[in-house]
Amino acid sequence: MIELKSGIITDERHELYGQSVRDAILIFPYAIGSSVGAYAIYSLKDNNQAPKAMVCSKADITTASGCAIAMIPVVELPAGAKVATVDSGAIATVDATTEWATVKI
């Protein structure tokens, strides 16, 4: 869970608790939760707190539709790629201008 006005992760059980998603490249396996999560992504953008890009193992309907409206690039990793090996705080770049996006860590 993220506080939408500040972009700060408020779920105490989350390993990134207390950190902001603003201008980050979010790397996660897939989204869970409510159908209104798409509006949460849009709200982050509207409040200038949105991540720069999202990279996930499986792009789901909530993430894809929210990012489509918020104009946030989403990169789906090829099957089998492991996301758990990336350290939080590592510098990453995403080039999603073509069909095959490039993610550099």
Partner: peptide, 15 residues
């Protein structure tokens, strides 16, 4: 879905 103001907030209304 996204009708209750508590679910979509000010940004949702604006959208």
């Amino acid at each position: 879905s996204g009708v209750n103001y508590n679910t979509i907030g000010d940004s949702g209304l604006k959208f």
